[in-house]
Design a protein around this nucleic acid. Structure first.
Length: 225
DNA sequence: GCGACAG
DNA sequence: ATCTTGTCGC
């Protein structure tokens, strides 16, 4: 990756530039009819090599079943720091995405979208780089605050920071802690929430994220490459 | 100033 | 992210 920041200070400057490019616009679930390629991406660590392993998966828009997947590995070039996750994970994620037969129409990411100190979580950063709608799905909140949504499927409360609405805490499964959804790029909070609910099939995480997570964190066996 | 802090 | 056994609930 060229022009990739190599320090927190440089990354911060980069984030402020990216933030000006993030756009929130309508991308309703009704687009499902014309949406052929739905993707999910996630990163895990290969305990043997110490490398980051990214998985990019294509999911069927209707059945939510796995259609195609690609894995890429790279030595980490950036330490994890809260607020700068994308600089560590995106290089491998982009390589995995390039291995797919085509660029997806919408991408689910593991982490925040605009619910970030500078409005550029990993989902937003990826969306700007590939110019596609992206949705951030996180298991924990990084920025802003929300109250606990009612314990009923699909119920949600907004994530706010000083009157701004950044996403929602969503009950994707009853009796399980909520997930935190925020738009990455080219989608709105409400549309992102609808897409996440559409792909929530009995598990805490929506299928694109859950399946990518399974593949990225699967332990390497001797018979695998 | 102090704590909180995606994966 | 990852290390980890049994246990509780649907």
């Amino acid at each position: 990756m060229s022009n990739w920041p190599d320090s927190l200070a440089a990354a911060k400057v980069d984030q402020c530039r990216l933030a000006t490019q993030v756009q929130l616009k309508s991308f309703p679930l009704s687009n499902l009819n014309s949406t052929k390629k739905v993707a999910g991406v996630d990163v895990g660590v290969d305990v043997v090599s110490g490398k980051l392993r990214a998985a990019a998966v294509l999911i069927d828009p209707i059945t939510a079943e796995l259609i195609e997947w690609c894995v890429a590995q790279q030595a980490p070039q950036f330490d994890y720091q809260p607020g700068y996750l994308s600089y560590r994970e995106l290089p491998v994620v982009l390589e995995a995405l390039e291995g797919l037969s085509s660029i997806p129409d919408i991408i689910f990411c593991d982490g925040q979208g605009i619910a970030h100190p500078r409005g550029v979580g990993i989902a937003s950063h990826l969306g700007v780089l590939v110019q596609r709608p992206t949705i951030g799905v996180a298991k924990k909140l990084l920025f802003g605050r929300s109250r606990e949504p009612e314990n009923k499927l699909g119920f949600h409360t907004l994530i706010k920071y000083q009157h701004q609405i950044l996403g929602c805490a969503l009950r994707s499964r009853v009796n399980v802690k909520p997930i935190y959804v925020s738009p990455g790029h080219l989608i709105t909070v409400s549309d992102a929430t609808a897409w996440v609910m559409h792909f929530s099939r009995g598990y805490k995480l929506p299928e694109p994220t859950r399946i990518a997570d399974r593949i990225a964190s699967r332990r390497t066996k001797a018979w695998q490459s």
